[in-house]
Amino acid sequence: ENVVSAPMPGKVLRVLVRVGDRVRVGQGLLVLEAMKMENEIPSPRDGVVKRILVKEGEIDDTGQPLIELG
């Protein structure tokens, strides 16, 4: 899985990584606010952040691509 998608609709509060960062499975990639709760979205695998497809403050839909890993 190279693309991390939104598991729920919500607002992107914080992006915790930058392009080029090495990430490990379970590491937080970004924080979504949904139903007044903050949810940290973890990396599904080890890899390198290739692209960040959303910006802080954006509203996303379920299934929307958020981050691409390489």
Score class of each variant (00 low, 15 high):
K11S: 04
G28M: 11
L66T: 02
V48L: 08
G63E: 06
E56W: 09
P44E: 04
A34I: 14
K11L: 09
E33D: 06
L53M: 12
G20Q: 03
D21K: 03
P9D: 06
L32A: 00
P44S: 05
S5M: 13
A6Q: 04
G57Q: 06
G57V: 05
P9N: 09
D61A: 13
G47H: 02
V25F: 12
S5V: 15
L29A: 01
V48D: 03
P65E: 06
N39S: 11
G70M: 14
Q27L: 05
M35E: 13
D46C: 11
V54F: 08
L30M: 09
V48I: 13
V54D: 01
G10C: 11
V4N: 03
V19M: 05
N2M: 14
T62N: 07
G26A: 04
V25K: 15
G10W: 04
L29Y: 01
P7Q: 07
G10M: 06
Q27C: 07
P44N: 05
L32G: 00
D60T: 15
I67S: 02
A6M: 09
L16W: 00
M35K: 11
E68P: 03
D46A: 11
S43K: 02
E33A: 09
V17G: 00
I59L: 11
V4C: 06
P65M: 08
V12T: 03
E58C: 10
I52K: 02
P7D: 06
K55V: 13
D61W: 14
D21N: 05
L66P: 02
R22E: 10
D46F: 08
I52G: 01
E38C: 11
P9E: 06
V3P: 04
G70I: 14
V19C: 08
P44V: 04
L66N: 02
L32M: 13
R24F: 12
G26S: 04
V15K: 00
P65H: 08
G57N: 07
L53Q: 02
V49D: 01
D61H: 14
A6W: 08
L13R: 05
G63K: 07
V12C: 07
V15N: 00
G57H: 05
I59F: 14
V48P: 01
G28F: 10
G28W: 09
S43I: 03
V17P: 00
T62C: 11
L66Q: 03
R45W: 13
R22W: 14
E38M: 10
A6Y: 07
V31K: 03
V49C: 05
L13N: 04
K50G: 05
V3W: 14
V31F: 03
M35H: 13
A34C: 14
E56A: 11
K55I: 12
V19S: 04
V49M: 01
M37T: 11
G63Y: 07
E56V: 14
D21A: 07
E56L: 12
R18H: 10
V54G: 03
P9H: 10
G20S: 04
E68L: 14
L32F: 15
P9K: 13
M37H: 10
R22S: 11
E68Q: 08
G57L: 06
L32W: 11
A6F: 09
N39T: 14
M8I: 09
Q64A: 13
I67P: 01
R51L: 09
G57T: 05
L16S: 01
V15G: 00
